[in-house]
Structure formats: C-alpha cells, structure tokens
Computed example of a mutant assay.
Amino acid sequence: MSLITLIASGTLSGLASVLLRLAALRAATPSAGGEWMPFLFRAGAMGSYGVGFVLYALALRKANLGVAYPLMVAVSILVVLAFTALHEQVLRPTQIVGAAVIFIGVWLVTRQV
C-alpha cells in the first residue's frame, strides 16, 4: 500500500510542477477571457502539493525514509520529463542520460539486499 501511496504522491508533486509551468506560460500570453487560467493552474498546483504531502506523510508510516523519498522524487521527475517531452518537445539527450542516472541511483538505493 505504501508503494502505491508513494507513486501517487510523486505523481501529484510532478503534476503541481507542470501546473505551475502552465500558469507561467498562460500568464506570459494573455488571451481574451483567459486571465483566470493562471490563477486556476496555481490553485490546482497548491491542491496537488497538499494532497501529495498528505499521501507522502501516510506512506512514511510504513515506508523507510531512505526508500520513500528517492522513489517519490523519481516519480516526480518522470512526470515532469514526460510533460516536457510531450508538450515542450525540448527533451535533450543530456536530460535523458541524467534521468537514467537518477533512476539507476534510485534503484540502487531502494533495492532490498
């Protein structure tokens, strides 16, 4: 159960970062009737961070901190990189290699000996 909770927490944390990015993009390009969109994106980000925090706190009841935090952050990074690849189309090879190194590190830290 804590694994699912950690994945959900990381997903919500990554989603919050994506929503903040969308708010910044929307604020930079004002459109007719769209002045509320940055506010809504920021409110959604705050809600995502809040729910993600609660889920993370619940997961820490049963999960080891040395396993929980790297896993949650790896999921967040995956969400942000997926958004970047799908919507901004600027995922560079160095970002892919860096993400692979992070995921290998998370695997090494979280694996059971």
Rank of each mutant, 00 (worst) to 15 (best):
S2P: 04
S2E: 08
T5C: 07
T5R: 13
L6Q: 02
L6Y: 05
L12M: 01
G14M: 05
L15N: 06
L20R: 11
L20K: 07
L25F: 01
A27V: 03
A27W: 01
A27N: 10
A27Q: 10
T29R: 15
P30M: 12
S31W: 08
E35R: 08
W36D: 11
W36E: 04
W36L: 07
F39E: 01
F39C: 04
F41I: 05
R42N: 06
R42A: 05
A43W: 10
A43D: 00
M46E: 13
M46P: 00
G50P: 04
F53L: 15
F53N: 12
V54I: 14
V54G: 00
L55H: 07
Y56R: 04
A57S: 11
L60T: 14
L60R: 06
R61P: 01
K62H: 09
A63M: 07
L65A: 14
G66Q: 07
L71E: 00
L71F: 00
V73I: 15
V75I: 14
V80G: 02
A82R: 02
T84Y: 10
A85Q: 05
E88T: 08
E88Y: 01
E88I: 08
E88A: 04
E88G: 00
E88F: 12
Q89M: 10
L91C: 08
L91P: 06
P93G: 13
I96G: 03
V97I: 13
G98M: 02
A99S: 11
A100G: 14
A100S: 11
V101Y: 03
F103E: 02
I104T: 12
V109S: 13
Q112F: 14
